[in-house]
């Protein structure tokens, strides 16, 4: 049993310590908003927060989050009310949408520490997250919009 806080609620998951956190979250906890893209830490689709820090959940062992606080896209807000989610909807950022949970979680980390990031800061922060539909320009604009509104 591995116990940790998941989106504010205490959970205990019956998985081996070495199980990648991604699969513990998706298949055991049943939160499927966090996506599998490469399984090798190369694309960022599985990005979540551990104690506020954005990490690749495919490269994190479930055992490593014991006692910690994990936030997934489902925990960012209850009703799409996070400024980033609002901006994402207003600008219609997603196309296929598959990478967007990871994009938003990565962006949320940036806004939590940098109130109004420059374009350059956004690009440097977000460069590890691939979007195959090519929504990068809208992601930048949505982060800037959210930063203004936050």
């Amino acid at each position: 049993m591995i116990s940790f806080k998941l989106n504010g609620r205490q959970v205990s998951l019956d998985v081996p310590r070495t199980t990648p956190l991604l699969w513990a979250i998706r298949d055991v906890a049943g939160l499927t908003g966090t996506k599998y893209g490469c399984g090798a830490g190369l694309c960022g689709a599985c990005t979540i927060h551990i104690d506020g820090v954005a990490v690749r959940s495919c490269q994190t062992s479930a055992g490593d989050v014991a006692g910690k606080s994990v936030t997934t896209i489902e925990g960012l807000s209850k009703d799409n009310s996070h400024p980033l989610q609002k901006a994402w909807v207003a600008l219609e950022v997603p196309q296929c949408g598959y990478c967007q949970s990871g994009q938003i979680m990565k962006a949320a980390e940036l806004l939590a520490k940098t109130k109004s990031p420059s374009r350059q800061e956004i690009v440097e922060h977000m460069d590890g997250n691939i979007c195959r539909c090519g929504t990068y320009h809208k992601i930048i604009a949505a982060i800037q919009t959210a930063a203004k509104g936050a």
Binding site: L31, T32, Y36, Q85, V93
Partner: peptide, 16 residues
């Protein structure tokens, strides 16, 4: 759009 920004959009990979 709304379900693609909160993780609730259902892709084939999400089916259980």
């Amino acid at each position: 759009t709304p379900e693609k920004v909160n993780g609730s959009a259902l892709y084939g990979i999400d089916v259980k």
